[in-house]
Design a protein around this nucleic acid. Structure first.
Lengths: 154, 154
DNA sequence: ATCTATGCAAACCGTTTGCACGCTT
DNA sequence: AAGCGTGCAAACGGTTTGCATAGAT
């Protein structure tokens, strides 16, 4: 695995490599996509039942600090983590069925340029969740490709 | 104020208009931008000290249900609310100084088109927070207009 | 041997809920 | 008079922290 070398560097920096950290980092790296601390705990607990949830939290903070994990920017009411080696990407989330689709960072290039021009702002979107309606649900609901009206009174 | 008529409609639908709801709605509408439940509670408590935090939460849920308030999509580790009459807009947030700038919904038009073409996804971004670096901080840090490198090891 | 990281349990913070009562309708 | 909405207090779920100890260096 790739992180062994990273870990080496970290050890050189005075951090200690414990079984728990190893397990948690592996689980995080193996898990494609986001994980909550709780889920991660459930996963590593299969291999090391004694591991404590607090340790997972502390380790996640540590991984974030040393740059091996990112906390999710946007999204729902729970903090999620992902392995930092993952390429920048974003998500489309369907309001109707909840399906998530990963999209490429490049889709934001035009927007970033525009923000730079108009607002002199260097955008660095790391993990944005964009809500809307996926093709399937749209087809199921209506033939038109217009979004369902949002402010409609019931 | 505009909501009197809305409230009228709601009353017609069988909802009851209490002092608390009136106060909370007014405070929410008067507050430009996002508010947390706690902050809103603090505000209304100035006029009605007996008002309970649970009531604020319940009222916010109710306002959301009837379409008078939106919960914030993206953003930080706290759920925030805003008055629904507010136009769709988004925020640029500086990672360095924390400054927030409101940006127009139209900035997303090109992105929405692209998402529709490429992913057949109808994006409905309501309140996205885009992190990055504002002009001032960028000037202070470096002459170049490049974003500070993100994955740099310390 | 040193001192970091862990386990445990309690604390914390925002949010939700059950219940009896008050107030709008 | 009827019943929705409120206050109160307790419960809840996720996250953090103090403390003694195990374990990596």
């Amino acid at each position: 695995m790739r992180h062994d070398e990273v870990i080496h560097r970290l050890r050189a920096q005075g951090y200690r490599l414990t079984q728990q950290r190893r397990l948690i980092l592996n689980a995080l790296a193996a898990h494609h996509g986001h994980v909550s601390a709780r889920e991660l705990h459930r996963i590593v607990a299969r291999q090391a039942p004694a591991i404590n949830l607090a340790t997972v939290y502390r380790t996640l903070h540590w991984l974030e600090r040393v740059g091996l994990a990112h906390a999710i920017d946007a999204g729902e009411h729970q903090r999620l983590y992902e392995y930092a080696a993952t390429d920048d990407h974003h998500h489309l989330i369907c309001r109707s069925c909840g399906a998530q689709q990963e999209i490429d960072h490049a889709v934001f290039d035009a927007l970033r340029e525009r923000l730079l021009e108009r607002y002199a702002f260097v955008a660095d979107p790391r993990h944005i969740a964009i809500f809307g309606w996926c093709a399937r649900c749209r087809a199921a609901y209506a033939p038109a490709d217009a979004a369902p009206s949002r402010r409609a009174a019931p």
